[in-house]
């Protein structure tokens, strides 16, 4: 009876331990990979600034028929270093919003770009004899402001502005702010449940090891199954937004997160199986079993 009760309690605690281990894995991987440093490094590794440059060139070329401003007026004045700075700033502002901190909204003037646009306008005015009146100056300022808005928008590779506009960022900020506490609770619970299982099965040799082992192995399997599906089916490549910089940013982040979860879960499953095997080996060395007397 006592053994049956111990068995049932061990099963229940193991089930709880499985879920706390899964939550801890999510928390640890999320903490490491959903960070400003990781996002900025992924952008650089996947040549996102170069993709933004191409998209800007395409945008200004398409608009040149309606604006009469050739694309090279803008593109000759900006480079991938400048775009990397804007991308990093956008990511910084996104994470500042997630952490409910203040964002950097200072003017990001590019003297080369300002000079290029001014030179073009001045050349146009000289060529056509156009008077540099208030209308001319307003058009010049509007063109500069529009150029900066387009550049900032194209460099918002994770679309934090759109997420903020639709209220998604504030909801994410709520969960992100609780990540540390939840992670602490999950890891603490893992340790507590591990000790509990060990005490509960103190009557059998290394009995706690068996239950901890199967909990870790099952937690690993539960995470491995969906991660394997995402890898094998190349699920994230079906991402709907095909704008190159946004597509690359999101798919590279999701793939990195998925790979991290997959490798962590393999480690956990391996540890669990090892513990189970060690238990089995120790359990086989049973000093209570005496060889039967043959008369």
């Amino acid at each position: 009876m006592k053994n049956a009760l111990t068995y049932i309690c061990s099963i229940i605690i193991s089930v709880i331990l499985v879920f706390t281990v899964i939550s801890s894995v999510f928390g640890v991987v999320g903490k490491i990979h959903v960070s400003e440093e990781r996002f900025t490094s992924l952008a650089v590794e996947n040549d996102v600034p170069e993709k933004v440059y191409s998209e800007l060139e395409k945008y200004f070329s398409n608009r040149s028929s309606s604006t009469s401003i050739p694309a090279n007026v803008y593109m000759d004045a900006i480079d991938t270093e400048y775009l990397t700075f804007i991308i990093n700033r956008n990511i910084h502002n996104g994470f500042a919003a997630l952490n409910s901190e203040s964002t950097e909204n200072s003017v990001i003037d590019n003297p080369s770009l300002n000079a290029s646009i001014e030179d073009f306008f001045n050349a146009y005015a000289e060529e056509t004899g156009c008077e540099k009146d208030d209308k001319f100056n307003k058009k010049l300022e509007d063109t500069k402001s529009s150029a900066y808005n387009v550049i900032i928008d194209q460099c918002d590779i994770y679309k934090f502005n759109a997420l903020e506009k639709h209220g998604v960022l504030s909801k994410l900020a709520f969960f992100y702010s609780k990540l540390d506490i939840v992670l602490l609770i999950c890891v603490g619970a893992c340790f507590a449940l591990t000790i509990l299982l060990t005490l509960l099965n103190s009557g059998t040799k290394a009995g706690g090891m068996f239950w901890i082992g199967i909990s870790l192995a099952i937690a690993g399997i539960i995470i491995i199954v969906p991660c394997s599906y995402f890898i094998v089916s190349d699920y994230f490549s079906a991402f709907t937004i095909k704008q190159p910089q946004i597509y690359t940013a999101y798919t590279s982040t999701l793939n990195a997160l998925n790979k991290a979860m997959f490798s962590t879960s393999i480690c956990i499953m391996t540890i669990g199986l090892c513990l189970t095997i060690i238990y089995r080996v120790l359990a086989c060395e049973n000093p209570d079993v005496k060889p039967a007397k043959v008369d």
Partner: peptide, 18 residues
């Protein structure tokens, strides 16, 4: 038998809960 069944029972319960 109980030790062999234990992982399957835990897995079944976890899958059921999820």
């Amino acid at each position: 038998a109980a030790h062999i069944a234990a992982p399957f029972i835990v897995l079944a319960i976890c899958t059921g809960i999820i």
